[in-house]
């Protein structure tokens, strides 16, 4: 098991947001978590990454045999957890490529591997940008600064391509993309998927699932995963919306 989440409860400023999430992810799997706005999807992804705004009040998160709560955000990242942000923050003054080299070297160092010097990294990154079809000029700019929405999303997937995480949590990486950009991002995700790693796609829309085929689809509402199924569940959601599930849940 790569990730095992059991009865996870989390709150922000004392307000409960996650109210008993259960999820199991094995290597090689692609999971999609869908659900209406405000249901707690981003919160779940950020709690897994260790965002300080959220307090885990009960439940467990086990990643690769380790209790995630014992690890700081940076330690989780070095262990292979990656979060592609729904709203990537801009960091003026920090060069995108230097930032990625530093991040990669931290990960390599933790894995006991040799770090890349600037020239080696340059060769490496020039290969990786092709995966997301990104203009290399964005490497010389400040991290996400004055990037368009689509460029920011590409830059997130580029970081995934650079860091090669074991568990990628992609929070609405598809939202707001035109169809060409969506294809690029989806192809990138497919290209980076292997038998050793896993992807958790958090999405509001079914559209990306035409390009990235999930093994499991989960529905989250009000801080819980209330229904799980195969990829056909996504199509059903597309046709019928979320209300019927919520009603079903309420009837039980």
């Amino acid at each position: 098991m790569l990730l095992q989440v059991k009865d996870l409860h989390a709150s922000a400023n004392g307000t409960p947001i996650l109210k008993g999430v259960n999820l199991e992810v094995k290597p090689g799997e692609v999971h999609a978590i869908m659900g209406p706005n405000g249901s707690g999807k981003s919160t779940f992804a950020k709690v897994l990454a260790g965002h300080p705004a959220y307090e885990v009040t009960s439940g467990t998160m086990t990643y690769d045999g380790e209790d995630l709560q014992e690890l700081e955000t940076d330690e989780r990242a070095r262990a292979g957890v990656f979060l592609a942000f729904q709203y990537p923050v801009e960091i003026p003054g920090v060069s995108n490529s230097q930032f990625m080299r530093q991040a990669l070297n931290e990960r390599l160092k933790a894995a006991g591997k040799d770090e890349l010097d600037p020239l080696q990294f340059d060769d490496y990154i020039r290969e990786r940008v092709k995966i997301v079809d990104m203009d290399p000029k964005f490497l010389d700019r400040s991290v996400n600064a004055d990037f368009s929405g689509g460029e920011k999303k590409r830059n997130e997937i580029l970081q995934m391509a650079v860091l090669e995480p074991k568990l990628a949590l992609l929070d609405e990486t598809d939202s707001g993309l035109d169809i060409d950009a969506l294809r690029v991002v989806a192809n990138g995700i497919n290209e980076l998927s292997t038998e050793e790693n896993a992807v958790v796609l958090v999405t509001h829309y079914q559209r990306i699932l035409n390009y990235v085929t999930p093994d499991y689809v989960h529905v989250m509402t009000r801080g819980r995963i209330i229904k799980s199924g195969g990829k056909e569940l996504a199509l059903e959601l597309e046709e019928r919306g979320y209300d019927w599930i919520t009603e079903q849940e309420a009837a039980q």
Binding site: G50, H51, D74, V89, P92, V94, A103, E106
Partner: peptide, 27 residues
């Protein structure tokens, strides 16, 4: 949020603070 972003990529808190301070000065 900037610090969390850096840390979510494997950069520790001290280094992250240094990078952000540097970025402020860099301009």
């Amino acid at each position: 949020e900037q610090l969390f972003y850096l840390m979510s990529r494997g950069i520790d808190a001290e280094r992250g603070q240094a990078i952000l301070t540097y970025a402020f000065a860099a301009e």
